[in-house]
Write a protein that binds this DNA or RNA. Structure first.
Lengths: 140, 140
DNA sequence: CTTGCTCCTCTAGTCGCTAGAGAATGTAGC
DNA sequence: GCTACATTCTCTAGCGACTAGAGGAGCAAG
């Protein structure tokens, strides 16, 4: 149980097999040792790195950001300003996204509520889509 | 001023020139008339359709949904159940997205707040990324 | 008639995977 | 050993919704 094949790594990390290979391909995950039959075998350190990547992706960091964060993790004596900046940028992005989605939600709700389930010709959904000015309150 | 070239259509609609051509290419926007010099010229009806597409994209509908919505708009005597269903599905999606982004926001805030701006080795940002269990409260 | 803008078509690239083909390897039961 | 099946391998191509760039033609003003 020192090292596990890719399927087991996938199971443990929650990252799909082709995605793990993809991460190796783009240089995010180091190429692991191979068995005699040319199969990848992952050590605990690889699995940790994979978990880091997965968690970062879940939080919405893009691959380049993760690349930077991993490099930082590999150099623990550096100042963490870069990591902080990346996280803050991501936070700002999330906040912005929530804002615009909330505006969207209000508008979609109005559309859906306004629909009287009759003919398309009188449908508020279609009407609003055709005429942006009908929903100026939530500017987007 | 009956019909306008593609640049002007872009300006009026807020859709970029290559995107307008792309919409034509995928059959979302009908191919407009051409001038002698082979330039596209858009009528008011094209501009209306383009505005519809743009507004729909802003609201996050995907191209296939917009294709359906446009077909509905072209047939106003049909029942609008389909339009309603599409809008409701989109609303449900937005609501879900807001939920998960809000959880994410909480987590990113904790990370960023926890960062003491020292070395990477003690940085909470990196630490949390490496260890998902440190943020179980917001399950994602 | 030249300058500079707009427009044309076409191909290829973006991001982060995902799907599928076709072949080899590993494992469990008989 | 042999067979069946699961897992793995490499490779290429596709997804959505554009975006970028090459290389060329048209057009309006000075």
């Amino acid at each position: 149980m020192r090292s596990v094949p890719i399927g087991e790594a996938a199971r443990q990390s929650g990252v799909k097999v082709p995605t793990i290979r993809y991460y190796e391909h783009i240089g995010l995950l180091p190429a692991p040792k191979r068995s005699e039959g040319n199969r990848r075998h992952y050590e605990t350190s690889d699995l940790r790195r994979l978990a880091f990547i997965r968690h970062s992706r879940e939080l919405g960091f893009d691959i380049e950001a993760i690349r930077t964060l991993l490099t930082l993790q590999d150099n623990p004596s550096q100042p963490c300003a870069t990591a902080d900046t990346i996280a803050q940028a991501r936070l700002a992005d999330v906040v912005q996204r929530i804002r615009s989605l909330t505006a969207l939600k209000a508008e979609l709700e109005l559309m859906v509520e306004g629909c009287r389930h009759g003919k398309v010709g009188e449908c508020r959904v279609i009407e609003v889509l055709a005429d942006h000015s009908q929903c100026e309150h939530a500017r987007h």
